[in-house]
Design a protein around this nucleic acid. Sequence first.
DNA 1: AATTGAGGTTAGACGTAGTCTATTTCTTGG
DNA 2: CCAAGAAATAGACTACGTCTAACCTCAATT
Lengths: 143, 143
Amino acid sequence: MENDLYNRNAIVDRLREFGINPTHQRIEIAYALFSRQEHLSADQIMAAVNTKHSETSKATVYNTLNLFVKRKLIREVIVDPSKVFYDPNTHVHHHFYDLAAGVLTDIDGDELHLTGLPKLPEGMAIESIDVIVRIYPKQHLNS
Amino acid sequence: MENDLYNRNAIVDRLREFGINPTHQRIEIAYALFSRQEHLSADQIMAAVNTKHSETSKATVYNTLNLFVKRKLIREVIVDPSKVFYDPNTHVHHHFYDLAAGVLTDIDGDELHLTGLPKLPEGMAIESIDVIVRIYPKQHLNS
DNA sequence: AATTGAGGTTAGACGTAGTCTATTTCTTGG
DNA sequence: CCAAGAAATAGACTACGTCTAACCTCAATT
Ligand SMILES: [Mn+2]
Ligand SMILES: [Mn+2]
Ligand SMILES: [Zn+2]
Ligand SMILES: [Zn+2]
């Protein structure tokens, strides 16, 4: 993985671009997300970062993810009432959410379009638009 | 409110239509949602139902809301990681979410349209499509 | 080299939405 | 009235996320 776009050197640069001091824990957490390019929960990220030897506390995982979100290095996806997913892809895009597997998949922002958005309530501005397409396996036996 | 569409008699009928045995607590919870026509959290519903004298336990509030959702009498809206909202409006529609106030507002399903939804992953079917437009007051000082 | 202080990490207590369990109460039909 | 299933309940419990207070790291200052 020498010329991986998401090697640790590239990640250090990326953190700096976003005004984030690249500490060891921050690099590992960013690496977990960017090298996989998947949607992970805080839990999954903590597990990924602590596989070899326990390096990072729960507090740091949450501190770091919240910092990354605030600096817009990553994005939060809220689809499951029981946990937040973190998304290394900050391009405009949307999501399939597989209800059976609990897995998110990207829908390209160039494919899916919205039309007819009504004017906003007075004095309001848009922060973001999230489209979630909830899907399930056809042969799924529902409770 | 004699000829309210959402008086308790109409609600009893509605519960029966959806195969729900209309007990006292279920009627009160449905009434809280349908008479207001607002998006409420479990917490707010419990408060609404227990204003005069405490009639309904937390367990019953959650049992009942989950039953209503399963029978599709109401719908869940997942926009805030800290609580679920319950929506008495089950027509196809979407939502503005005011991040500052924590309040949901409906966007009519006839106004906002989606185009270019890619084909689903193999063997999957759509359960629902949620569009959340997150908005904030323009003069909002961000953290 | 010692001191300082800011930024970062940590363990573990804490808050809290939602679930579960064991028990009690209600309803309904015989 | 009785039996039995359905519903409601208190309160223990779980789990995600936050907070606090102590500790560590490191670079700037003396
Ligand atoms: Mn958050
Ligand atoms: Mn639920
Ligand atoms: Zn994504
Ligand atoms: Zn709605």
